[in-house]
Computed example of a mutant assay.
Amino acid sequence: MTPLRIALYQGPSGVPQSNRVSLDALDDAARRAASAGAGLLVTAEMYLTGYALGDAVATLAEPADGPGAQRVAKIAAEHGVAIVYGYPERDGDQVFNSAQFIGSDGTRLANYRKTHLFGEYEARHFTAGESLVVQAPLGDLTVGLLICYDVEFPENVRAHALAGTDLLVVPTALMRPFEVVPQTLVPARAFESQLYLAYANRAGAEGEFHFAGLSCLAGPDGVAHARAGTGEDLVLADADPARLRASRRQNPYLRDRRPELYGPLA
């Protein structure tokens, strides 16, 4: 079983002047990630456009197979690295806060729509998604997708664990002063649900928002095996399926569940 090297791209900060700016930066990040042996590059929530868009969200949103997706697919295929990126997705009259998973050959593998919208800003501009567990295989791992606030609900991560997710990828736009999420909560989620968790945040200021950075890859041992700083960064670490299986054998959380007692929690 082959470990998967994951690159977390935290940047660039600020709202890009156009998708071309963020896509050129993505192309450079993919080149650097591939040269370091990465098989997967993960970007932040709303990477293509920036997060603090206000009413421009509706104008900049595009379909899942739109020009942004086509350009990301070309970048993935050119560098031979799979990519997960955040973007505003238009579907008819609705706009979703979405994350798309592109394979290393440019194939669109999965698309996830954020199910738990954060705050008045997101509630005003986006429709909440209705499919919690979205997955696709990559090498020896099953990859699942969530976005930012979603991971702060233990039910969401546990649903992925029970559905067989090995690596949970979470494009993020976490603001200050909530650094406790990447520092404490994300490693705890990985430990309690026995999976790898790749958390790629934004950094710097956009409008009224100041993002915390601190992107990380947390393992089933509850340890952050890679940690970014608070500015633009590219960090790498491995998700090892053999180590994950060994951890699951040793850690009884999933085996010792008693779901017949949990009905009232829903």
Results as ranks from 00 to 15, higher is better:
Ala224Ser: 13
Lys74Ser: 15
Tyr253Glu: 15
Val42Pro: 07
Arg249Gly: 01
Leu48Gly: 10
Val72Glu: 08
Arg32Thr: 07
Val42Gly: 09
Leu132Pro: 04
Arg124Cys: 13
Glu155Val: 09
Ile147Leu: 08
Gln17Tyr: 02
Phe153His: 11
Leu41Phe: 05
Val81Asn: 02
Leu141Phe: 04
Ala34Asp: 01
Tyr149Ile: 02
Lys114Thr: 01
Ala173Phe: 02
Gly207Pro: 12
Val181Gln: 12
Asp221Tyr: 05
Ala128Arg: 03
Ala110Asp: 08
Pro88Asp: 14
Gly164Ser: 07
Ala52Gln: 10
Ile102Arg: 15
Gln94Trp: 10
Glu89His: 03
Ala198Gly: 00
Leu40Arg: 13
Leu261Phe: 06
Asn156Tyr: 08
Pro252Ala: 00
Leu23Ile: 01
Ala123Met: 07
Asn251Gln: 15
Gly54Val: 00
Asn19Gly: 11
Asp240Trp: 05
Tyr51Ile: 14
Arg258Ile: 01
Glu260Asn: 09
Arg5Gln: 15
Leu167Lys: 02
Ile102Gln: 12
Val84Asp: 06
Phe211Thr: 14
Phe153Lys: 01
Asp55Met: 04
Val157Leu: 01
Gly50Phe: 02
Leu26Met: 13
Leu174Gly: 11
Leu132Trp: 02
Leu217Thr: 12
Asp105Leu: 15
Glu179Val: 12
Leu168Trp: 06
Ala246Cys: 10
Arg90Ala: 00
Tyr199Gln: 05
Asp256Arg: 12
Val15Lys: 05
Asp233Met: 03
Ala25Thr: 09
Gln100Asn: 13
Gly86Val: 15
Leu234Trp: 07
Ala190Pro: 04
Met1Phe: 06
Phe126Asn: 15
Gln183Trp: 08
Asp65Ser: 02
Leu167Gln: 02
Ala226His: 01
Val42Cys: 11
Asp238Ala: 05
Val186Tyr: 04
Val95Tyr: 10
